[in-house]
Design a protein around this nucleic acid. Structure first.
Lengths: 280, 280
DNA sequence: TTTGCATGTGAAGATCCTGTAACCAGGTGC
DNA sequence: GCACCTGGTTACAGGATCTTCACATGCAAA
């Protein structure tokens, strides 16, 4: 691996790419112009954003519960009390990117809006692409300063995955995963579906997998080994022959929760033998 | 070293922290319009900002050494290569607020500028007050996040960190940390998670880390040395191979006390019993 | 069942990462 | 000028990790 590629891995791919994949950007727009919303919606769909259209102001608490990355608002829709609303929203949600996108305005109005906490002011009519860029720029800045990314620890089966520590634990004991092992486990654990090797490789390594590369298999083996040691009664990573791997904590021998029954029976049989050996 | 001498040193040497200390926003403007600069200068003087006027592009390194909070640039002054310059600046100084303030432009140009990393785009002629608001909006989060770092002294393990004195102590005795050393220790001590080298560098030095730069490692070594001397029974900075460093005071030899593993032992314990019953 | 792939496994060598120390440059005080 | 300090760079060694390869095993189609 080239030094550059390695750098990309550590610097961006592992964190950013994987997260972006699962964490779509969430945006709400308070506006009543159907044409404007339509254009915006089309464009954002293509980008994979999660757009929420609102035809009038909602409570700050409602905004909080939407867990937005950004809010676009037309002050005209808010009517009187719009300044107070803006101030309340910006004050209450310092991590939210707020963009005012409204009709013609005076310098004084724009200054007021920005001083109240808005991140940008766009004047309608405006090009959707430009608005999106402005939103992106605002989010970018927020993200940058809001270090604590959404790195919540999650528990699946018997193990706990802690992105903040780059490590997984079972019963309080570290699995002693290496950085790459952890990245793969983390990626797998964030998705229910089967992931193709190429997909795993590309997301973790940051570039395309060479034909015939077995690295993913080898890492899955190491992961399984450490998982089995730490949590012997469970199986976590399942092979889908000819496809790839799927993460799902399952209690061996026990009736696994009814997922898609396209499971490979081999694994179950094998593990059943393992348990049987224990019992006998 | 006397407190006075230390203050002087800090004023000279440090990056972000020093800016916080004297609480003065530093702004550079690359523009050739004397009237524009005059108006801006008057207004910013009143606000107590530190304005630096530049009549042409300067090297990125020069910008780095200015320790800026924000940069306003007229693309017309840069001429050909302005896009590349913009990209270079934004890439190298992710913490810098970059505002393009230039004459009439197309949507495509504005989109391009914002995509390259600019935080905002103002079209000349514009009102100085509005421009200042836009700059403030771009800087806002950065500052707001750094301000509340109230200079509270904290004690971890056997050492006490005193941001107000730019020094750490063990058992009343100073560790004799240099400014950089202290900043790194301070940063690390404020976070429980693993910090990547790039992250540490960016937050302490104020700009992006060059590939292959080992400065962080070297400073960590110096820190460890001083920490070991002052508090031999503890280890504070832990290496996460392939990732970065994590701060956590731990007593050597003894099991470290705090591992807030947010497991849900209830279910796990139950399942374990279930299996045990099977096996037994 | 046999055959052709796909996947699991183990180990060795290549590669990368980190700790360490020595070194240089710029600044400061004497 | 000179000595000293601090920040930053570089080279090297040892260890940790990753990749690769050969071979064993498992799966599915014929």
């Amino acid at each position: 691996m080239s030094p550059e590629a390695r750098d990309v891995l550590v610097g961006n791919a592992a964190g950013a790419a994987a997260q972006r994949a699962n964490n779509r950007l969430r945006l709400a727009v308070i506006d009543r112009d159907p044409g404007f919303m339509q254009v915006l919606s089309n464009r954002l769909d293509a980008l994979g954003w999660d757009l929420r259209g609102l035809s009038s102001a909602v409570t700050v608490d409602a905004l909080v519960s939407m867990r937005l990355n950004a809010l676009v608002v037309d002050l005209a829709v808010l009517g009187p009390g719009s300044w107070e609303y803006l101030e309340r929203v910006c004050g209450r949600l310092p991590g939210l990117a707020v963009i005012v996108c409204t009709g013609p305005s005076s310098v004084a109005q724009r200054v007021r809006g920005l001083r109240l906490g808005a991140d940008a002011w766009m004047t309608k009519p405006c090009h959707a692409e430009e608005l999106i860029c402005v939103i992106e720029a605002a989010i970018r800045r927020h993200r940058r300063n809001e270090m604590p990314q959404i790195e919540e620890s999650t528990s699946v089966g018997q193990i706990t995955i802690r992105p903040d520590l780059y490590q997984a634990y079972a019963d309080g004991a570290s699995l002693e995963l290496t950085a790459r092992e952890f990245e793969i486990l983390h990626l797998l654990s964030q998705s229910d579906r089967v992931l193709r090797r190429e997909e795993i490789y590309e997301r973790v390594w940051g570039y395309a997998m060479a034909h015939g590369d077995r690295s993913v298999d080898v890492f899955v083996r190491k992961l399984r080994q450490k998982l089995r040691t730490a949590s012997p009664a469970w199986s976590y990573i399942h092979t889908h022959f000819g496809v790839g791997y799927r993460f799902a904590p399952e209690l061996d021998g026990g009736e696994e929760p009814l997922h898609e029954v396209r499971d490979v029976p081999g694994d179950d049989g094998h593990e059943a033998e393992f348990v049987a050996a224990l019992v006998g």
